[in-house]
Amino acid sequence: MSEPLIEVAGLTKRFRVSAGGSGTTGGSRTLRALVARRKVVTALDEVSFRIGAGELVGYIGPNGAGKSTTVKILSGILVPDAGRCVVAGRVPWRERVAHVATIGVVFGQRSQLWWDLPVIESFDLLRDIYRLQPAAYRETRDELIELLAIAPLLAVPVRQLSLGQRMRCELAAALLHRPRLLFLDEPTIGLDAVAKLAVRDIIRRLQGRGVTTILTTHDLDDVEALCPRVLVIGAGSILFDGSVADLRAGVDRERILTVDLEHEVGSFATSSATVVSAAGRRVVLRYDPTRIPTPRIIEEVARDNDVRDLYIEPQPIDELVARLYRNLELEEA
């Protein structure tokens, strides 16, 4: 890791929310402020981490865990209550204009482009907003158009693009000013499988260009496919900081063994593993390889049954993370 691009220490943010207000009633905040009592919710509780230049970091956590609060503080649009936060030598919210000129943000659910304008006109407006040199702008733009394969989309108004097409244009728009730091917020949400893979491929290639990237997502497949490093946040604290492999090792070492039999499953019993399911011709087992070595369990299953095929997988990462959150809740209770 080279010198850190982002340094966060003891970052704390609290919000006042109305007690019991579900927020879905559609009522006005002004009135609720008068009617309801308020309580304080801690969105970030002394969060600290460092991210080096050029890293691609997955930032995951359940809703309300503090993900978007962190991203908002790092991008300079939210002021924390306490703590230190330096991005590329600047305190984001103190020098908002200078800071945001060096970052790019993509929201999966919200467009950064002008809805009624052809894509290329949005790009040209961004050139003027970011005060880019015409020559440098053209160079970057053409590079991105090629990289993201959006040449056929440039003349199309944004509202007519499919979600996958729009996402590629959003990525280009966020990179026109050559940011050092890129925030991707749910970039694959709502995309079909093909578009999702395309976007992942693009993110990977961008990373090769040296852009430091923070990916917040609910799609853990994205994280597993892209991020060498993952930060897990829950209830305002960093629960885990490391590689996906370490995340697996730290939380839970269990593996999943799926066995396909030649016959219908009758009653299936084994002393060394937990039966997750047993139906039709398929049995799914969960076991801990540190307690029973993998060859042993295969041997055991093959001895007692007429096995046609079997395969072993790690636990799906969703379950790992769910387990991490559950552990946290247990500690809190």
Binding site: T25, G26, G27, R32, V35
Partner: peptide, 11 residues
Amino acid sequence: WRETLQYRLAA
């Protein structure tokens, strides 16, 4: 009553 009140502020 509270719900109605919230809806009704705009009105």
